[in-house]
C-alpha cells in the first residue's frame, strides 16, 4: 500500500529495533535506517532522509527533545512518532511540544502500531488518551501560570477543541467522537491537530523570546544553523 514511505527506527534496544523493522518491512514500509543513539540518529537521518522516524523517548546519550530538534533541522518536514516504555509524562509532553507528531506506548499491539505509523506518514497527529490528558493539563497550566504576563498571551483552546480533547482522553475513538458531536471524522482530526499545533507554536515563540532576551540570536539576523 505505502511502498514508498521511508521509515527510520531509533531505539537503543537491538531486539526491539529489529522486531519493529521486521514488522514495518512486512507491512510494506521501506526501513531506510536504524540507530541506537540520538546523535548518531540525527547524522544518519541527514543522509537517509526518512519520511517518518519511530523514536524511542529514552535514549542513552541525548534527550528526546534534542533528537527531535536535530531531526527537524536536518530533515525539514520529517514526522516523528514517539514510543516510550515508561510513562514519563513530562518527557512525553516536552517531546510533543518540541515537534513530535505522535505518541504511542511501546506496549501497544501490532495493529495499533502499524495504524499509528500510517497515520503519522499521512500527516495526522496520533494521540493516545494519555497524551490528550497531558495536552489538556498543559493548556490549563499555561492559563493559570501565564495570564499575569500580557506579552505571553498563553495559547487557548476553543470550546470545541477542549470538548474533543476531553473525549479523546476518555478513550473515545475519533469515529465515536464524530458521532457524539455530530462532526465529520476529518473535523475531529483537525481539532486534535490544532491543539498540538497551538502548543508547538507557543513553545517556539517562547524559545525565540528566550533567545532574544538572552542575546542568543539578535534581531535581524538569521539564527545560526
Amino acid at each position: 500500500m505505502s511502498a514508498a514511505i521511508r521509515v527510520m527506527v531509533v531505539d537503543d534496544h537491538p531486539m526491539w529495533r529489529e522486531g519493529v523493522s521486521r514488522d514495518l518491512a512486512a507491512a510494506g514500509y521501506d526501513v531506510v535506517a536504524t540507530s541506537g543513539e540520538g546523535r548518531q540518529a540525527v547524522r544518519i537521518a541527514a543522509a537517509a532522509r526518512p519520511d517518518v522516524v519511530i523514536l524511542d523517548l529514552q535514549l542513552p546519550d541525548v534527550s528526546g527533545v534534542e533528537v527531535i530538534n536535530g531531526l527537524q533541522t536536518e530533515v525539514p518536514g520529517v514526522r516523528v512518532l514517539m514510543l516510550s516504555a515508561s510513562g514519563e509524562q513530562q518527557d512525553v509532553l516536552d517531546a510533543m511540544k518540541a515537534g513530535a507528531t505522535g505518541y504511542l506506548l511501546k506496549s501497544a499491539g501490532l495493529t495499533d502500531f502499524l495504524d499509528a505509523v500510517s497515520r503519522t506518514a499521512a500527516g495526522d497527529t496520533v494521540f493516545t488518551p494519555g497524551l490528550a490528558g497531558l495536552v489538556l493539563g498543559e493548556f490549563r497550566r499555561l492559563a493559570v501560570t501565564e495570564p499575569a504576563d500580557p506579552r505571553a498571551d498563553a495559547p487557548k483552546l476553543t470550546e470545541r477543541e477542549t470538548e474533543v480533547l476531553r473525549l479523546v482522553a476518555k478513550g473515545l475513538s475519533y469515529r465515536q467522537i464524530a458521532e457524539r458531536l455530530v462532526l465529520s471524522h476529518r473535523t475531529v482530526q483537525n481539532h486534535v491537530q490544532n491543539t498540538l499545533g497551538k502548543l508547538q507554536l507557543h513553545n517556539r515563540v517562547e524559545l525565540t523570546r528566550y533567545a532574544l532576551q538572552n542575546g542568543l540570536a539578535p534581531l535581524g539576523e538569521d539564527p545560526a544553523p
Partner: peptide, 22 residues
C-alpha cells in the same frame, strides 16, 4: 533500578507482548 528495569525487562516484556499478540 528504574533505569535498569526500563532498559532491560520492560523492553523485553513489551516485545513479547507485541510479537505474541496475534
Amino acid at each position: 533500578l528504574a533505569r535498569d528495569i526500563h532498559d532491560s525487562v520492560l523492553q523485553v516484556l513489551a516485545l513479547v507482548k507485541r510479537r505474541g499478540a496475534g
